[in-house]
Amino acid sequence: MKGEVKLGILGGGQLGRMLMQAGLDFNLYTLVLDPDENAPCKDICNEFYVGSFRDFETVYEFGKNCDIITIEIEHVNADALEKLEQEGVKVYPDAQTVRTIQDKGLQKEFYKKHNIPTSDFLILKDKAELEDNLHFLPAFQKLRREGYDGRGVKRLGGVADTLDAFEEPSVLEKLVTFEKEISVIVARNESGEVTAFPVVELSFHPEHNLVDSLFAPANVPYKLQRLAIEIATRVIESFNMVGILAVEMFLTKDGQILVNEVAPRPHNSGHHTIKANYTSQYEQHLRAILNLPLGSTEIQSAAVMLNLLGEPGYDGEARYEGLQEALAVPGVYIHLYGKKYTRPARKMGHITVLGKDVEEAQERAEQVKNVIKVKA
């Protein structure tokens, strides 16, 4: 690796912030592009640019100043990434992978083509096509593009729910009766080395449809953990992708593992690795895109991760209650994302709770989960 690498990050949110915190140890010169002038990365990167990562010219001009480009959000201009690739800039994940993952229809067809297990699905052009496929319900309708953190998803249990269905192009995914939702974060470097983090178990917020908490390691039989890791490895190798990939999966009641969605970047289901594993997902992503040997993913401690969301009814400059009480509990670590303003359900930080086993970590998490409040 040459002396100082110029790393461009499209997106200046909390994932970019934690990536840069890991990047300090690699002597990286970081440039960040984000539309928010108060983005969490603003004050800790070397160069910060306010602009749209969806706009071709903005991304292209930004990328010309970088040795390597990576992303912390999928909704970026893939055409600009492709042009930068053609001009010799290293882009990880590559433009083609980003294009496929941006479109949930292309993503599902990719799984089908590569024999990756996933739920049955239909691609719909519009709401009229939904009316012709009511026999497929119950199902989840997902917008093909722009869905994020639970947005762009509707549960259609029956005909009555279709009144509120999306009009835009979408994917209709057969409802899966699952035992657990799990995630495997897998990494691959340019040399083709692949490593996977241990399987984690996800718990979703019932109202906001985003990860509320996770448990690591997952309470899943060893054989199924191995299968989940094999599937995640097959996904990243099928994409021929360099970097880190979060693979969210369903464990069904009859012991199948089905891929739900993937994210080609650091992910909410890997935050705990900063404290709980020998190598964090952020350091691993940097090792992968710098083509360094990948780090050990072994667990040092069992962990529970809790998301800190903005409290209902508060919208404005953020203030935090309960930090002292929470930090008095052994094994509790707080990560605040540097967001100036809060709003209901906005991700403002996370708490990692360590223990000698998951049971101890869960007991400690119960002590703190309602202590910290993000208000305005």
Rank of each mutant, 00 (worst) to 15 (best):
Ala78Pro: 06
Gln21Trp: 10
Val76His: 00
Cys66His: 00
Phe53Gln: 04
Lys64Trp: 09
Asn27Glu: 14
Ala78Met: 09
Glu85Ser: 12
Val59His: 01
Gly23Asp: 09
Asp67Asn: 13
Asn65Trp: 02
Phe56Lys: 04
Phe62Asp: 02
Ile44Cys: 14
Leu28Arg: 04
Asp25Leu: 10
Ala80Gln: 08
Leu31Val: 03
Glu85Trp: 11
Ile69Cys: 03
Pro35Val: 02
Glu37Val: 13
Cys41Gln: 07
Lys42Ala: 13
Gln86Cys: 14
Tyr49Ile: 15
Ile71Glu: 05
Tyr49His: 15
Leu84Pro: 02
Gly63Lys: 00
Asp25Glu: 15
Cys41Trp: 04
Asn77Asp: 07
Val50Thr: 10
Asp67Pro: 08
Thr70Trp: 01
Ile73Met: 14
Asn38Cys: 10
Glu72Met: 12
Glu85Pro: 08
Asn77Cys: 13
Gln21Gly: 09
Asp79Lys: 09
Leu31Asn: 02
Val50Pro: 01
Tyr92Thr: 07
Val32His: 05
Phe53Tyr: 11
Ile68Arg: 02
Glu74His: 07
Ser52Asn: 12
Pro35Tyr: 03
Val59Cys: 03
Ile71Phe: 05
Tyr49Asp: 00
Lys90Val: 08
Leu24Gln: 15
Phe53Pro: 00
Lys83Arg: 15
Gly51Asn: 07
Thr70Arg: 02
Cys66Leu: 09
Asn65Thr: 09
Asp34Pro: 05
Glu37Ser: 15
Glu57Val: 04
Gly23Asn: 06
Leu33Gln: 01
Lys42Leu: 10
Gly51Gln: 06
Asn38Gly: 11
Asn27Leu: 10
Glu37Ile: 15
Asn46Tyr: 04
Asp36Val: 06
Val91Gln: 01
Val50Tyr: 05
Ile68Met: 04
Ser52Tyr: 10
Val76Asn: 05
Ser52Thr: 12
Asn46Thr: 12
Asn77Ala: 06
Pro40Val: 05
Asp34Gln: 04
Gly51Ile: 04
Asp25Trp: 07
Val76Ile: 14
Glu72Thr: 13
Glu47Gln: 12
Pro93Phe: 10
Glu47Lys: 14
Val32Asp: 00
Cys66Ile: 08
Glu37Thr: 13
Glu85Asn: 14
Glu37Asp: 15
Glu87Trp: 06
Tyr60Glu: 03
Tyr49Trp: 12
Ile73Lys: 04
Lys42Trp: 10
Glu57Gly: 05
Arg54Ser: 13
Asn27Arg: 15
Asn65Gln: 14
Thr30Glu: 03
